[in-house]
Design a protein around this nucleic acid. Sequence first.
DNA 1: ATGCCTTTGTGAACGCGTGCACAAAGATGG
DNA 2: CCATCTTTGTGCACGCGTTCACAAAGGCAT
Lengths: 253, 253
Amino acid sequence: MATGRNHRPATRSRGIPEATVARLPLYLRALTALSERSVPTVSSEELASAAGVNSAKLRKDFSYLGSYGTRGVGYDVEYLVYQISRELGLTQDWPVVIVGIGNLGAALANYGGFASRGFRVAALIDADPSMTGRQVAGIAVQHVDDLESIIAANDVSIGVITTPGGAAQQVCDRLVAAGVSSILNFAPTVLSVPEGVDVRKVDLSIELQILAFHEQRKAAEDLSRSVSDGVRVSRARRGDQGPEGEIPAVMPA
Amino acid sequence: MATGRNHRPATRSRGIPEATVARLPLYLRALTALSERSVPTVSSEELASAAGVNSAKLRKDFSYLGSYGTRGVGYDVEYLVYQISRELGLTQDWPVVIVGIGNLGAALANYGGFASRGFRVAALIDADPSMTGRQVAGIAVQHVDDLESIIAANDVSIGVITTPGGAAQQVCDRLVAAGVSSILNFAPTVLSVPEGVDVRKVDLSIELQILAFHEQRKAAEDLSRSVSDGVRVSRARRGDQGPEGEIPAVMPA
DNA sequence: ATGCCTTTGTGAACGCGTGCACAAAGATGG
DNA sequence: CCATCTTTGTGCACGCGTTCACAAAGGCAT
């Protein structure tokens, strides 16, 4: 039920809105950068600008965590880093398994952003026997037959699925049965999971299609503007705005 | 200003809500699967189930495109595939450049989901001279010095950034200056772009942090429930719920 | 042709998220 | 100790998105 975007639509996480939770990592990243530059305090305006959000939104977000600011001064960077880290559960270590060590799985295994924030790649799992034992990012790939024991041995609760779409649901079921209750799904599949399991989806193809929609809309606007203004627009040459040549994605006013 | 999630917050795309646009690729995928099985028609209930959404939401989404269903019967699969494809701009070919051919960039270049839906990897670009000329996914990597000419020669309007965070803004600026107006950003950076340029962000680290938040919340709930019920919960052993041992992410009722 | 049955399309209500605007709070200088 | 100035925290209003519930519409059997 839980899809990647607009996550956990009904249940509010007991006080902290989902939209706020989704922004906390953004703030944390900006704060960490400030911390590394030894900046002691930061105002909501500055931090909001660094995180790319509205300052009122940022203040409201922080208000859900508590009153951690000082009026007239701003927020203590170190303190806020700690509070957000704790709220996100990053003060503890999260072992993660990656299932499906293809190009993407290998890329994720090598991705530095994991280790930097409390996430540790506990195991790499693949169904291909010829992959078993191969070192990827310094970790030996294990066979999917041992999935359950690997999960149990490492007390893993977060799984990343980077298998082909056809295998995703099956892998998901096994992960969940083995005790994993949070899944990051890169496979182009709608996973069905029991109540209590969180799924977030990252779908590269969908992201591109959304961009294409807006791109087409912009092209159509440019086209209609160029017709009236006589301005030549590169993208307008592309043509093919549908079979009837009508402007797509534009409802009749 | 445009962040990856909740995209284009103010401007509605002249008739089609952004939330609907984000779901169209989901419907399209489900419909394509039905089409391959030669299913002629589908009801909103069936399709919604396949796409993992509410049927009322699906019907309202389709209502923004027009009245393409037949009451008492459902939707014609082939016709709907065509209409959605056209609406998303997938009837035309979108040349895409990928900048930053590391693990992730290479994974994306090899990703089959691109070509299957009107997207064509027109060029791979990297700043490392030793990468220049190397074949990745059958495409020769080109040097970033030639970025502008590559964009122009291929009439590229969509760029994918998979560089390290430090290089992302610079690459972004050059892409935009060269005429790219839609960017898919995998770098952990808040990109600032001029008006009219769309940016979608995919941040693996952020997705994991959101999962960790919910995971921690579930662990805290399990913990408090196990205290009263005497149920032993695996995750409860993990401990370390913050320095005061209080339950995090739970506002006092 | 007529009545029934299924399914769409949508009006209306509700809830969440956002942003404005301001009062409260606290630091700082005299 | 008081005045001033900065910045937080939040009440409020607004708009978008979701969901319900039902009337309209069309197929189908008799």
